[in-house]
């Protein structure tokens, strides 16, 4: 069974060749004339002000945490869906309870305003 992953490995190697060969061939062909203003970060023509890696909105962290929780929930549903015909009513009730807990969290997050952006 593991042998069916060998082609995936080969595919990764072939897919890596494409950008590596492209960049390599390009290096031989393209010009290289750097200058101070050409290498400056783009900021609509003015000199860059401060460092770009500054603080950013905390909402991005909230979204990241929500993603981890809800995406893991999705992964739990995959095996459940595949053997749903064997679980039948038991599986249905079990999943309603599982999703019920998820929904409580979801409405809590909604009421807390974590899904509002502005």
């Amino acid at each position: 069974m593991l042998a069916s992953y060998i082609p995936v490995l080969i595919f990764i190697i072939v897919a890596l060749l494409l950008p590596v060969v492209g960049l390599g061939v390009g290096r031989l062909l393209r010009p290289y004339k750097p200058s101070a203003s050409k290498l400056m970060p783009y900021e609509c023509g003015v000199d860059p002000e401060g460092d770009a890696r500054d603080r950013f909105s905390v909402r991005f962290y909230v979204i990241a945490i929500l993603f981890v929780i809800f995406d893991v929930e999705t992964i739990f549903l995959f095996p459940w869906a595949v053997i749903y015909d064997q679980l039948a009513l038991f599986g249905f009730i079990e999943m309603v309870i599982f999703l019920g807990i998820l929904l409580v969290g979801y409405f809590y997050v909604w009421k807390k305003g974590a899904l509002e952006w502005v």
Binding site: V25, L29, L39
Partner: peptide, 13 residues
């Protein structure tokens, strides 16, 4: 054109 164009790596990157 993509292959022949200069490939700039910004100084701060």
């Amino acid at each position: 054109k993509f292959i022949l164009k200069e490939d700039i790596v910004p100084s701060r990157a």
